[in-house]
Amino acid sequence: MWSALGLVTAAAAVFALTVGPLPIGLDQLLSALGIRSDSSLRAYETAAIVDLRLPRVTLAILIGAALGSSGAAMQGLLRNPLADPGLIGVASGAALSAAAFMVIGVTAWIPERLALPLAAFAGGSAAAWLVVRLSLVDGRSRVATMLLAGLALNAIAGAGIGFLSYIADDLALRSVTYWMFGSLGKAGWAELAVAAPILALCIVLLPRAAVPLNALLLGEAEAGHLGIDVDALRRRLLTLIVVAVAVSVALAGIIGFVGLIVPHLLRLVTGPDHRLVIPGSALTGALLLLLADTASRALFVPAELPIGIFTALIGGPFFLALLLRYRNAPELS
C-alpha cells in the first residue's frame, strides 16, 4: 500500500511540474531537470521549472507530509481524534506575529523575504510554548487545560489580528488576508535550504514515537505502567509538532484541514495503529497538498486561488461526506 501511495505521489509531483501558465511537456521537463540532454529548451523554460515549480512542488510535499504527520501525532498525544495542531495556538500565534510585521512594518535589519517567515515562526512557537507552560500543573501538562489555554490564546490572537487589520492600510490588509489563506508560491530555494532539513527531520522523527503513542491511547497511567516515560514523550512530540507546524506556517501561511482530515482518512483504512497512521498521514498529506496546489494553479490560469481556501473547500465537504458515511463506524465514535 505504501509503495502504491508513494508512486501516486511521485506521479502527482511530475504532473504538478508540467502544470502552470507556461505549458511544459514531459520531454522538456526531463531536459530541464538535466535527466535528458536537449538543447531546444529555452532558458526561461528551464528557469520556470527549476526556480519556480520545483521548489514549490518540494515545499508542497514537505509541508503536506509535516502537517499530516503532526496532525496524526497530535491526535494520538491528546487521545482525541478531533485535535489539530492549531489547537495549541501555533497557527494563530504565527498569524498574529506575521500580521504585526506586515502592518506595522518593522524595518528589520534582515531582508523582508526572510524576516516574515522568521516572525511567523517565532510567533507560532512562542504561542505554543505559552500554551504548554500555562497548562503545567505540578510539572505535568494537562490535556484539558492545554486545549482551553489554546482556545483562549487563539481568541486573543484573533482579536490582535482583527485590530491590526483595522488599522492597516489597504495594501497591508491585502497581504495579511492573502497570507492567512496560505500559498506555496512564496518560498524559493533560499527558504527551502533552511526549512527543508528541519521539516524532513520532523517527518522522519515523528513516526518513531508510533509505538509509545499506541500505548498512550490506553491512558496516561496505563502507558506509564507499560514502561513509557509519558512526560518525556509529550515533550518530544510537542517540540516536533510545534517546530513542524511553525516552519510550515512560516513558509506557506495557514493551510487548514490537512492535519485534521488526513489522519482521519488513514484511520478509516488502517485502524488506529500509529505505526501505519503517522507515515501514512505523511504520504497522504503530501499527495493532498500537491494536488490542491496544482489545482489552485491550474484552475484560474494565470491567477491562482490561495491554497488554504482550496484545502478548506475540498476538505470540508469531503470530511462531512466521510462523517455521514461512517457516522456509526467505531473509528469515529
Binding site: R79, P81, V211, N214, A215, L217, L218, G219, E220, E222, L226, G227, I228, R267, G271, P272, D273, A329, P330, E331, S333
Partner: peptide, 18 residues
C-alpha cells in the same frame, strides 16, 4: 479504561507485550 480509539481486541492485548 480510557481507550476510545478503535483498536481490535487482539491489538489491545498485544500492547501488553510492549
Amino acid at each position: 479504561d480510557h481507550l476510545t480509539f478503535a483498536f481490535t481486541v487482539e491489538e489491545v492485548v498485544a500492547l501488553g507485550r510492549l
